[in-house]
Each structure stands twice: as structure tokens, then as C-alpha cells.
């Protein structure tokens, strides 16, 4: 009895040692924190929790979502960038370069080890159903004639994810993006509500955010800033190219990243796992339920995407006179 107990202890100790030896190579061996630079219950939080649950199933370690929405997301992004690059702190990064342009915080792609983009929601332009503008072209021609007559909701902060791609379209169409009266709001829902009440002439935003009021027959989308049409129920909304002849993509994105200096083997393991998750029915359905668009870019392409985001932000914010 005594002997067998001893053997058992020795055996267990050996086993623990053995697994510990292997585990040093096999990340993750303890729970991983995912920092979400936004409050609990919002869109970013929802997508992160969806990913975290499936990462946990795949990698057999808890992936804990920690929300930090302070400073409009600046604090959370900084936390991700300054974490120890050991693979146990990851985070969700979303449209960040406006902070740099507005002089609020220098956050850029070199601070992160980007792993993959999993979501892009293209920007759109919306009008009230009673608006005289039936097409994007009608609206843009009117804006070209005298943009200062029109009040446009920013669907959140001006200079944000929805405003910038639309402003870029304005520039490409020959409209002065500084001329229209741009009206900020605390989020897309308020902007859309104001548009429905007749307080605005146009509003930039996204199709998912506008969906309830579009379906209630209060708002009409004019175009979506994407090179391909969106899935149901927005299959009838023309792309920017169809509506205006300008081929462009732009909007809000979300990606998984770690701090700079994350070991290459962890990046590649995460990349493979995330790709598997992204392709799964569970993830695609979850995103669809929450009205989020899905897009996949691997680590390398994500870096290129971030660089393009920074370049286009710089140019457009300067044209808007918002750069500091």
C-alpha cells in the first residue's frame, strides 16, 4: 500500500516533469488574455468573445476576454502593444490611425505583431426615404454643385471609420470634403435616428447599423464602399463603383494582434488556428447573427492592410483639415 502510493507520487512527478518539458515548446500552457479595447456588450466585444470561445476549444486553454474601453479605446490598444510578447496577452485591434492624426496617441502597425484580419464592415451612405436623392450619383452631383448646403451625419466621430472612406470618395469625385456640414454623434445608431427624423440630409455609416431603420422603411442606402456587393438582405445596394464609377474599399476592420516581438512560431500557430476557426460554420453564423461582415487576411497581408489604412488616413485627414 505504502509502496504503491510512493510509486504513484513518483510517477505523477515524472509525468508532470515530462509534460512541463514538452509544454515549453507548446504554447499555450496556461490561460491567455485577450484585451478588447471597448466596453463589454458592444460589437468588438461580441466578435472577440466569439473568437475566444473557439480558440479555447481548439487550443485547450482558457482565453479570457478583458474589456478596457477607456479613452475611447486608446488605453486598450496601448495595453496590447506594451504587453509582454510571450503569447499570453493578445488583443483585438480596430481602426486606430485617427488617434495619431488627431494628435491623441501614436498608435501604429509597428507596435503590434498582427496575426489576422477577421472582420471588415464596408462604409455606406444613407438618406431618409423622403430624400430627393434616389441614387449615389444624384447625391454626389448635388454635393459637387454646392456641398455647403448639406448636413451629413458622421455615424460616430467625424474622421472615424465611416467618414474617412466616404470623404475619400468625395475627393475622388471632385467634391470638396471640407464643404458639407459634418455632424458627429455618439455612435451610428444616433446618427441614423437623426437622419430618420429629418435632422440630417445624409449620413455615412454601415449597412448593418442602418439595417433596422432601412427595413422599417425609414432610411435608404445609396451605395456601399466595397468592390463587391454585400450578401442578403443588402444584395440590391450598389457598390461605389456601380453608383459613382469609383472603385474603392473602406470601412471598419477588426484584427487579432499581439505585442511586437511575438515569437514567430506562436504567430504561425495562431494564424493557422484562427483560419480554421474563421472558416468554421459556427464562427460564420455567429458573425452573421451579429450583422458583421467577414473577411480573412493572413498575418503578412494584415500588415500590408494596416500600412494602407495608415497611408489613406494620412491623406484623407489632411484633405479634411483634421490632421494635427
Amino acid at each position: 500500500m505504502k509502496a504503491s502510493l510512493k510509486t504513484l507520487i513518483a510517477g505523477t512527478a515524472l509525468a508532470v516533469l515530462a509534460t512541463a518539458g514538452v509544454a515549453q515548446a507548446a504554447w499555450p500552457e496556461r490561460p491567455v488574455t485577450i484585451i478588447v479595447p471597448a466596453g463589454a456588450g458592444g460589437g468588438t466585444d461580441g466578435t472577440a468573445r466569439l473568437l475566444a470561445k473557439q480558440l479555447q476549444d481548439e487550443l485547450k486553454q482558457p482565453f479570457n476576454v478583458v474589456n478596457n474601453g477607456q479613452g475611447g479605446g486608446i488605453v486598450g490598444h496601448t495595453q496590447i502593444a506594451t504587453a509582454r510578447p510571450d503569447g499570453y496577452t493578445l488583443g483585438i485591434v480596430y481602426n486606430y490611425y485617427q488617434w495619431k492624426m488627431l494628435g491623441q496617441a501614436d498608435i501604429n502597425h509597428t507596435m503590434f505583431a498582427p496575426i489576422a484580419i477577421y472582420n471588415v464592415d464596408p462604409a455606406a451612405l444613407l438618406v431618409n426615404v423622403n430624400s430627393p436623392f434616389k441614387t449615389g450619383k444624384e447625391a454626389f452631383d448635388a454635393l459637387k454643385a454646392d456641398a455647403s448646403k448639406y448636413k451629413i451625419g458622421c455615424g460616430g466621430s467625424c474622421g472615424g471609420s465611416w467618414h474617412i472612406p466616404n470623404a475619400e470618395l468625395f475627393i475622388k469625385y471632385g467634391i470638396d470634403p471640407k464643404k458639407p456640414v459634418m455632424v458627429p454623434s455618439a455612435g451610428g445608431a444616433l446618427s441614423n435616428q437623426d437622419l430618420a427624423s429629418g435632422g440630417l440630409d445624409l449620413a455615412v455609416g454601415s449597412l448593418p447599423e442602418g439595417k433596422p431603420l432601412i427595413e422599417a422603411g425609414k432610411l435608404r442606402p445609396l451605395y456601399v464602399v466595397s468592390s463587391a456587393r454585400q450578401g442578403a438582405p443588402f444584395q440590391d445596394v450598389p457598390t461605389a463603383k456601380e453608383a459613382l464609377g469609383v472603385d474603392m474599399e473602406g470601412g471598419a476592420f477588426r484584427l487579432v494582434a499581439g505585442p511586437k516581438g511575438l515569437p514567430a512560431d506562436i504567430v504561425s500557430k495562431l494564424e493557422t488556428t484562427l483560419e480554421k476557426i474563421w472558416k468554421s460554420e459556427e464562427f460564420q453564423n455567429g458573425m452573421k447573427q451579429r450583422n458583421f461582415g467577414t473577411k480573412w487576411l493572413n498575418s503578412k497581408d494584415t500588415v500590408a492592410f494596416m500600412q494602407a489604412h495608415e497611408a489613406s488616413m494620412t491623406e484623407t485627414m489632411k484633405a479634411l483639415g483634421l490632421a494635427k
Partner: peptide, 13 residues
Amino acid sequence: MKGMQPGPTVFIN
């Protein structure tokens, strides 16, 4: 927090 932003649109959304 629960994504039910109060306002007239909550009756639609």
C-alpha cells in the same frame, strides 16, 4: 450595455 440603446428606435431594433 445590453445593446438596447434607449430611444424610439429600440422599438424597431
